[in-house]
Design a binder for these strands. Structure first.
Length: 442
RNA sequence: GGAGAGAUGGCAGAGCGGUCGAAUGCGGCGGUCUUGAAAACCGUUGACUCACAAGGUCCGGGGGUUCGAAUCCCUCUCUCUCCGCCA
């Protein structure tokens, strides 16, 4: 059974309302402010905002024209029905002729509307989310703010080695055979290496569910509509593996399928906050990456990750972001890894995010920080595309806010655990993993 | 992959081509009654566009027939049943 090419995307785009990442009235009423914020995000085409407003003006104009004509057609059609019922044939025929005239103008209008609509969507979708006011200015990772540090950087024993050597020494991951089976960047975990993965996943999930997150196992491929709704398309088109025969995308993160649970839904206010967690493998093409960054487990095409996702009331999302940051921080503390938390600057944050905190752990043998988690508030950017709304106390429809974070991504956690805990006798595992791993040491 | 049936409002479930944005039931909300609750009764209850109203749009998606489509036709997707294949 084959998925039809663009069907999924049409589900979203066919409607008048479209997926604005930013509501049109915001663009209209706060144009200068929007452009200023886009600049913080290093967005280079502020003129798109004007283009959008112009297109929307056109759309409204055509729509109004279309609606008034359609109204006449509708009224006349009803009239015809009545006339026919009364046997007044001639009058009915006259009305039919009139309708015929109006309809001639309707068809070209419809075409224009569809065209403007499509142009509008194509441009709208290019605008990233606006950064929150807390986001610092800046262009590169150097401009990110370190907001907190924790844990202790260990003094490694003489002869300490990076994780790719430890992996060989303890026979934990076979990169060569993974490359034979699939390609480079597809690790083949083996023996204790495989069990460590499983232990971490299970520990993370237990930790998350204990905090009230509901566990899911989602599909690992998604359709186009889902990839659009969470903002991977069109922004990250080239970064996802694409099964073209069925037009499915391999998920780059569980965020995509899990957040899409709430696509096209109106949730009850009392159901909020919705807290979800999911393990999934993540597939990333990492096109354009190269160099020493890709050594060992530092950067791979397939990796394991446990994600946390929340859908909340707008007023609460800022506080929930802090709560999620703390949640992840405690997890790193439980793993006894040296970490730091960064508030990303405008230029370094993701397309869809309003504010992002990155977590990095210190890889003692490589003497560098590795990103292991990214916790973001998307505010209404995703939920606007998703159309995930709730009715507030006044009965007004509002978009919910969505947030997510890694809790946690495994490969670099494993890299640090191996490197930082290496001893002559073996690799000492943090206490929280003992019961999952069945041993306190590799 | 083959054959058949189906897709309607929060859910269930009607709907001769005109009076259908859609019967009815459940649920929700408001009220009467009650010390309170239940029951009963009465009323109310989809979304989008739109400053508001008017108007327009939406009965899985797209297209067609017609003056007029939830209703007819084509097509895609999905669901269910049976067969085949299979972890």
């Amino acid at each position: 059974m084959k998925a039809c090419g663009h069907h999924a995307a049409k589900l979203i785009f066919a409607r008048n309302t479209g997926p604005y990442m930013l509501p049109l009235n915001v663009l209209r009423n706060n144009t200068a402010e929007v452009k200023r914020k886009l600049a913080v995000k290093q967005f280079k085409q502020p003129e798109l905002v004007d283009r959008i407003i112009a297109l929307d003006d056109d759309r409204k104009k055509f729509q109004a024209e279309f609606d008034t004509t359609q109204a006449k057609v509708n009224a006349a059609s009803k009239e015809i029905g009545k006339l026919m019922a009364q046997g007044r044939k001639e009058e009915a025929e006259a009305q039919k002729a009139a309708v015929g005239e109006w309809k001639l103008t309707l068809d070209p209008l419809k075409e224009k509307m569809a065209q403007v609509e499509k142009e509008l969507q194509d441009v709208l979708v290019l605008l990233p989310n606006l950064p929150s006011n807390k986001v610092p200015e800046g262009r590169t990772p150097e401009d990110n703010l370190v907001v907190r540090e924790g844990g202790e950087i260990p003094a490694l024993p003489v002869g300490a080695v990076p994780h790719w050597d430890l992996i060989k020494q303890y026979d934990l991951v076979d990169f060569e055979t993974g490359a034979k089976i699939t390609g480079s960047g597809f690790p083949l975990y083996k023996g204790k290496g495989a069990k460590l993965q499983r232990s971490l996943v299970q520990y993370f999930l237990d930790y998350n569910t204990a905090a009230g997150y509901t566990e899911y196992i989602p599909p690992f491929m998604v359709n186009e509509a889902s990839a659009f709704a969470t903002g991977q398309l069109p922004d990250k088109e080239g970064q996802m593996y694409h099964a073209t025969e069925d037009n499915f995308y391999l998920i780059p993160t569980a965020e995509v399928p899990v957040t899409n649970i709430y696509r096209d839904t109106i949730v009850k206010q009392e159901e909020l906050p919705i807290k979800m967690t999911a393990y999934s493998p993540c597939f990333r093409r990492e096109a354009g990456s190269f160099g020493k960054d890709v050594r060992g487990l530092n950067r791979v095409h397939q990796f394991e990750k446990v994600e946390i996702i929340q859908i909340v009331e707008p007023e609460k999302s800022a506080a929930v972001l802090d709560e999620m940051v703390e949640h992840v921080e405690k997890l790193l503390q439980a793993l006894a890894l040296p970490y730091r938390i960064l508030l990303l600057c405008g230029g370094d944050m993701g397309f869809t995010s309003a504010i992002t905190y990155d977590f990095e752990v210190f890889s003692a043998a490589q003497q560098r920080w590795l990103e292991v988690s990214s916790v973001s508030n998307f505010e209404s950017y995703q939920t606007n595309r998703l159309k995930c709304r709730f009715k507030d106390a006044e009965g007004k429809m509002q978009f919910t806010h969505s947030l997510n974070g890694s809790s946690l991504a495994l490969p670099r956690i494993v890299a640090c655990l191996l490197e930082n805990n290496q001893t002559e006798k073996g690799i000492v595992l943090p206490e929280v993993l003992h019961k999952y791993f069945g041993s306190n040491m590799i």
